[in-house]
Simulated assay, not measured.
Amino acid sequence: MAVHKLLDDLYEHSYSLIAIHSPLKDYRLAYFLNHQLSLKLKRTKDDFSYIENTSFSTFHYNDDTTDTAWHLITNISKNVVNETRDTDLFGIKSTTVLHYLVPEYKKVDYFLKIDNGDFFYQLNAVLKIINEMTHVVTAYTVDPNQLKSKNNLIFLSNA
């Protein structure tokens, strides 16, 4: 009798992933990316959430001429949790819990996901433009196949 094995990665999706370190707010970074790369990134109606009570703001642009989908997403989600305590003078203690979309890259502020198998040849030009932006500290490519949490990025397949 033959043994059949199911793999986790039944659907292998090819995309490029750029990690961006920047102190800018998400809407400001999207504005500068739109200006520098001639994109039209817009905030999605719903933020992405894979853990309860967390949300990662996302921006999306679908370029029909090159059949390329661009996604800008924050890597960090801050969740303020209030705890009531009777032993404290003020009674309420609030703590901030951080969640990461890609925990392997905790210092990365944003990810730019580019969905198009034919786009790989232009990736160096995009990286050069992003790195020359004033408020971007650095940007570099990340191999999605090396990530343990690559399944967190499938949500943006062709939204």
Rank of each mutant, 00 (worst) to 15 (best):
Ser16Leu: 13
Ser16Lys: 07
Leu17Ser: 00
Leu17Tyr: 05
Ile18Gly: 04
Ala19Met: 10
Ala19Ser: 15
His21Asp: 06
His21Cys: 05
Ser22Ala: 10
Pro23Asn: 03
Leu24Ile: 04
Lys25Ala: 09
Lys25Leu: 11
Asp26Trp: 06
Tyr27Phe: 14
Tyr27Ala: 08
Arg28Val: 13
Leu29Gln: 03
Leu29Thr: 03
Leu29Gly: 03
Tyr31Gln: 14
Phe32Glu: 07
Phe32Ile: 05
Leu33Ile: 08
Leu33His: 04
Leu33Thr: 03
Asn34Ser: 15
His35Phe: 10
His35Cys: 07
Ser38Met: 08
Leu39Gly: 05
Lys40Tyr: 12
Lys42Tyr: 10
Arg43Gln: 15
Thr44Val: 08
Thr44Gln: 08
Lys45Asp: 14
Lys45Leu: 14
Asp46Asn: 15
Asp46Gly: 08
Asp46Val: 13
Asp46Arg: 15
Phe48His: 14
Ile51Tyr: 13
Ile51Ser: 12
Asn53Trp: 08
Ser55Lys: 12
Ser55Ala: 13
Ser57Asp: 08
Thr58Val: 15
Phe59Gly: 01
His60Ser: 14
His60Tyr: 15
His60Gly: 06
His60Asn: 14
Tyr61Ile: 12
Asn62Met: 10
Asp64Ile: 12
Asp64Pro: 06
Thr65Asn: 12
Thr66Ile: 13
Thr68Asn: 03
Thr68Arg: 00
Ala69Lys: 01
Trp70Val: 02
Trp70Gly: 00
Ile73Asp: 01
Thr74Trp: 04
Thr74Ile: 09
Asn75Tyr: 02
Ile76Lys: 09
Ser77Glu: 07
Val80Arg: 04
Val81Glu: 06
Glu83Arg: 04
Thr84Ile: 02
Arg85Trp: 11
Asp88Gln: 01
Asp88Ile: 01
Leu89Asn: 00
Leu89Asp: 03
Leu89Gln: 01
Phe90Arg: 01
Phe90Cys: 01
Gly91Glu: 04
Gly91Lys: 02
Gly91Met: 04
Ile92Ala: 01
Lys93Pro: 00
Ser94Glu: 02
Ser94Lys: 01
Thr95Met: 04
Thr96Lys: 00
